[in-house]
Measured scan of single mutants.
Amino acid sequence: AIERGSKVKILRKESYWYGDVGTVASIDKSGIIYPVIVRFNKVNYNGFSGSAGGLNTNNFAEHELEVV
């Protein structure tokens, strides 16, 4: 089962992080479509409006993740 702290591989082909491994930061139990927040070591794009980097978290559905 996917739980907080799990290392997961991203299976969503259109994702910037496809094939990468991230760490589960949290799981939303409220029934939303993409409840699993995954944190990565790298950012997906340069930040804007003065922020240092881009996003390094993204929401995924459990079926888009594979525990490694």
Rank of each mutant, 00 (worst) to 15 (best):
A1L: 11
A1V: 12
A1K: 13
A1N: 09
A1P: 11
A1I: 11
A1S: 11
A1F: 10
I2D: 01
I2Q: 01
I2A: 03
I2H: 03
I2Y: 04
I2R: 01
I2S: 02
E3V: 13
R4G: 05
R4T: 11
R4C: 15
G5Q: 02
G5V: 02
G5I: 03
S6T: 13
K7I: 11
K7S: 08
V8W: 00
V8L: 00
V8P: 01
V8C: 13
K9I: 09
K9N: 03
K9H: 03
K9F: 05
K9L: 10
K9V: 07
I10N: 01
I10A: 02
I10W: 02
I10Y: 02
I10M: 01
L11E: 00
L11N: 02
L11C: 08
R12N: 04
K13I: 13
K13L: 12
K13G: 04
K13M: 08
K13T: 09
E14I: 07
E14S: 14
E14T: 12
S15G: 02
S15H: 03
S15I: 03
S15R: 01
Y16W: 06
Y16F: 14
Y16E: 07
Y16C: 09
Y16M: 07
W17T: 00
W17P: 00
W17R: 03
W17M: 03
W17D: 00
W17L: 02
W17K: 00
Y18F: 12
G19P: 01
G19T: 04
G19F: 07
G19D: 06
G19V: 06
D20V: 13
D20W: 11
D20M: 13
V21K: 01
V21Y: 08
V21H: 04
V21C: 09
V21G: 02
V21T: 08
G22W: 05
G22I: 08
G22V: 05
T23G: 01
T23C: 14
T23W: 09
V24H: 01
V24N: 00
A25L: 15
A25E: 14
A25D: 13
S26K: 10
S26E: 12
S26Y: 12
S26Q: 09
S26I: 06
S26P: 00
S26F: 13
S26T: 07
I27A: 01
I27R: 02
I27D: 00
I27M: 04
D28I: 08
D28V: 06
D28Y: 06
D28H: 04
D28N: 07
K29S: 11
K29H: 11
S30M: 04
S30D: 05
S30F: 06
S30C: 09
S30E: 07
G31N: 15
G31D: 14
G31C: 15
G31W: 09
G31E: 13
G31M: 10
G31V: 10
I32D: 11
I32H: 10
I32N: 10
I32W: 09
I33F: 11
I33A: 14
I33M: 12
Y34V: 03
Y34F: 10
Y34I: 03
Y34M: 08
P35I: 14
P35A: 13
P35R: 14
P35G: 13
V36H: 00
V36N: 00
V36A: 00
I37A: 08
I37S: 09
I37F: 09
V38R: 00
V38Q: 00
V38K: 00
R39Q: 10
R39Y: 11
R39V: 14
R39E: 08
F40T: 00
F40R: 00
F40S: 00
F40D: 00
F40L: 03
F40Y: 02
N41K: 14
N41H: 11
N41L: 12
N41A: 11
N41G: 09
N41C: 15
N41R: 12
K42H: 07
K42C: 15
K42S: 08
K42Q: 07
K42P: 06
K42F: 07
K42Y: 07
V43C: 15
V43M: 10
V43W: 14
N44H: 13
N44F: 15
N44K: 14
N44V: 10
Y45R: 13
Y45T: 15
Y45H: 15
Y45V: 15
Y45Q: 15
Y45G: 15
N46I: 08
N46H: 12
G47K: 05
F48Y: 09
F48M: 13
F48E: 15
F48G: 14
F48C: 15
F48K: 06
S49C: 15
S49Y: 13
S49R: 04
G50Y: 07
G50Q: 09
G50M: 07
S51P: 12
S51Y: 06
S51R: 02
S51Q: 11
S51D: 14
A52D: 14
A52S: 12
A52G: 12
A52I: 11
A52C: 15
A52W: 10
G53S: 10
G53N: 09
G53P: 11
G53M: 10
G54W: 10
G54I: 09
G54Q: 08
L55W: 09
L55T: 14
L55S: 14
N56A: 08
N56E: 08
N56G: 05
T57R: 06
T57G: 07
T57D: 07
T57N: 06
T57E: 13
N58S: 15
N58P: 03
N59A: 14
F60A: 01
F60T: 00
F60S: 00
A61T: 03
A61H: 04
E62G: 05
E62Q: 09
H63M: 05
H63F: 12
H63Y: 11
H63D: 10
E64D: 03
E64K: 02
E64A: 02
E64G: 01
L65I: 05
L65Q: 02
L65T: 02
E66N: 03
E66P: 01
E66Q: 11
V67T: 05
V67Q: 05
V68R: 03
V68Y: 06
